[in-house]
Design a protein around this nucleic acid. Structure first.
Lengths: 262, 262
DNA sequence: CGTTGACTTGAGTCTATTCAAATCCTGTGG
DNA sequence: CCACAGGATTTGAATAGACTCAAGTCAACG
């Protein structure tokens, strides 16, 4: 199903340090401990549309993303999709199958051309058992990842469509003040679904942001006049209090690795 | 803040095996490995309203619930709450602070009188480092818990208010067929918030279920004429296909430990 | 230059919300 | 045992936000 691995290069050792090292999952490992993953990793490129794996398939590999975007999703019986997560640079994909009887618990599809490292799941499982630091690091990365995701989902449930988009844009911004230009990382329709709305609503909500939050959109390019203004619009009632971030449910929005995709 | 520990009994060794053993977190441990947690655990009871801890507080203990319900939440600057999770029998509370710089990442409050075991976080941290089985077990339990929670939230986002309540009721049912009587585990208003709706909407949605899904409600007691009928109403479009559970995003609804609370 | 796919816009509908008022309950003090 | 305060729950009316369906634009591509 969904064939076509587009390239496949043996790992060059110079590739690994950057991408693997930056994976949250491996952040607590020493270079030596990382080495065995280096050696087992294979570098791959896949085009938009490629299915990495399907739910319930045995999980022989997990992946570390170096570039591009991967969508995790469930498929409903009648074909409708539920999007679980969107992953990019530094994220690991499919690693949790190791704790779930060795089968993937969701499906994964490339939604923007990716480069990634493919690593045997068996190696991870084996290493966890003998390396407490790795286990602890995984626990930490799992925990953090999920916590952020939670807060986000919970917050989103309280926001209007334009505000959810505001959050999304702010996560793309490298700076938390001044003006900024960001690029939408994937299809508008997909963003809409990720944010829990329809394409049509997304489009209308963008218009609202245009008027009320000082942004301009041209294709995938978004100009933000003032990040402060957008923040105010987005979190409006939630951030009047000075210093709110430190004690609120929200992590300060973290810029994701948003690579331009004209 | 929020004082009043109501009782506090030293642990009797006969207490521990049942509740600790049933905690997903400890499910992979041998009796010997569990022993050190036994010995360090303290049995406590707290009344509804008690704050176990607040966000950002240092986490000296984590808890294993034996009975009752605990709400995890974030507080917004203006006082509004975001509910992160509701936990009951067999769940652990506050354990993930161990991976988060030792501070709690959310607040926890008792919403129905609880009995629980309080265990020093330091012990957990130390054991994880020296016991790979524990680490693996934690990874597994974290992973599973989060995955379920996710699927649930994602599915809920696609459902109407009455359907979300249907899901909730089905999780309270011990059987997946025939009739059933269940008790709402906590305040209706709280259930409403957990399900992402207002109290008023909850009330109206219950009326809808009364008519269309064959249930009767009297206080906290809910009579379900036919679990099949309720399932059909709840998942309607999502489960026409035979055998759908196996391949759908949804785990078969798991009954939670719902103890009657007249 | 027609086709396809992505995006936007319009009109009408529906669900859930808000705000308020009306009930119902429960624990308390008499 | 009963009346009562205060909280929990239900109901009503009006409104807002998002959805559906369908039509209209636009741009890239063969």
């Amino acid at each position: 199903m969904a064939p076509v691995a587009n390239e496949q290069n043996p790992l060059r050792s110079r590739h690994a340090p950057d991408a693997l090292r930056d994976a949250l999952l491996f952040s607590s490992l020493s270079d030596e401990e990382l080495a065995c993953f280096h050696n087992a990793a294979q570098f791959r490129s896949y085009k938009k549309g490629k299915i990495l794996y399907l739910q319930d398939e045995p999980a022989d590999f997990f992946y570390v993303i170096r570039n591009g975007w991967v969508k995790l999703f469930h498929t409903m019986p009648e074909g409708e999709e539920i999007i679980i997560d969107m992953l990019s640079y530094g994220s690991t994909v499919g690693e949790s199958a190791v704790f779930e009887h060795g089968a993937h618990t969701s499906s994964a599809q490339v939604v923007e051309d990716v480069q990634l490292f493919s690593i045997p799941s068996a190696l991870l499982k084996e290493q966890i058992k003998i390396n407490p630091a790795l286990a602890l690091g995984m626990l930490s990365s799992l925990s953090q990842h999920y916590r952020k995701h939670y807060s986000e989902m919970a917050l989103n449930a309280m926001q209007t469509a334009p505000q959810r988009i505001g959050c999304f844009l702010l996560r793309l911004c490298p700076e938390s003040e001044g003006s900024a230009i960001v690029f939408l990382p994937y299809d508008k329709n997909l963003i809409a679904y990720v944010l829990g709305m329809r394409g049509a609503t997304f489009s209308r909500a963008l218009n609202m942001l245009r008027q009320k939050a000082g942004i301009r959109i041209d294709g995938t390019r978004v100009e933000i006049d003032s990040v402060e203004q957008l923040t105010k619009f987005t979190y409006g009632p939630f951030c009047e209090v000075p210093g709110a971030w430190g004690h609120s449910c929200m992590d300060k929005p973290q810029p994701v690795q948003a690579y331009a995709h004209q």
